[in-house]
Design a protein around this nucleic acid. Structure first.
Lengths: 159, 159
DNA sequence: TATATTTGCGTAACCAGTTACGTATATGTT
DNA sequence: AACATATACGTAACTGGTTACGCAAATATA
């Protein structure tokens, strides 16, 4: 079973990217299941943000991690249900809900920290033969921020 | 709006990968919509395979592109409905359905070819400052084929 | 040759993202 | 002060992947 996507070169790029990121996502979920850890992928992003800022609104979180706000709504809803996050109405703005980590989350943090650190170690090892990968990923993100993909293709089509 | 994921370094790796691949997927769908082209992302993979091999079973396709077979079932179902692909029962094996490109697909191929070529041009340009990206992506895929991610983390946790 | 195992592939339910839409509250403008 | 616009955020429907399950046909085995 040789990998047809590789033979497609750049044409296989997007699909390979998705395949890899899906793989990492499902594996991580699987890992947490197997270890009986009651968190899910991406929760670390929210927890890291709330460690840094104490309290944030949902929109601030969405902004900082560049997810759509409904995506964050879903993540927060689960984190709340599992008692990792609580909300506090903003005193000066009735639309806003301030999000905070719960004591339960803080208590579990050392355990999570250790697991995340292990994942970092594994990823670092995985990237050992790919020393430019993260930097170059940054370049790609940067370029797309300058001009979006669809517009690039449309412009190119006019040539 | 600075990008928090970047500050997380390796810890943000998986999420950045997903964010980018999702972005490319949605943009591409959007692009096809806007151009009123009746195909969808990933169809090029199937079409390329069927160009190369004339006829293949669903499982063969799934194998070659490394997708789960239900994923391919869904793609094929749509391609069939839009008349891009037809099926032919295998004479010697009653379980198998041979898949072939239709004349309609062949007729539309030059137009698709031009569009895909434009996308390749744009992606190539996008990767101009990231000359090692594709190679290093290959390294990562290779490593994960040697030992899967979950196992790596579990092993590392025992240390 | 009967039976157990494997294979092809269809369906269902789940998951994590998206866009589109609605509503309540703030904010800006005349 | 009244009204138009913008913002926060919740919900619904869609998408493209996944795993789990089932069944019929083929293949291997006793």
């Amino acid at each position: 079973m040789d990998d047809f996507l590789l033979t497609l070169n750049i044409e296989g790029f997007t699909s390979r990217l998705k395949r890899l990121s899906d793989y990492l996502l499902y594996s991580t979920r699987d890992l947490y299941d197997e270890l009986d850890i009651a968190i899910e992928p991406n929760w670390n992003l929210v927890i890291r943000l709330l460690q840094k800022n104490q309290q944030m609104t949902l929109m601030e979180i969405a902004d900082q991690i560049n997810f759509s706000h409904p995506a964050v709504v879903k993540i927060i809803k689960k984190m709340k249900k599992r008692g990792f996050v609580k909300t506090q109405p903003d005193q000066t703005d009735g639309r806003k809900q301030l999000l905070l980590l719960t004591p339960k989350a803080l208590k579990q943090l050392p355990q999570l920290e250790q697991l995340w650190q292990t994942q970092i170690t594994v990823l670092t090892h995985l990237l050992k033969d790919s020393p430019n990968f993260l930097t170059e990923l940054g370049h790609i993100e940067e370029q797309l921020k300058q001009q979006d993909y669809k517009q690039r293709v449309l412009t190119q089509l006019e040539q």
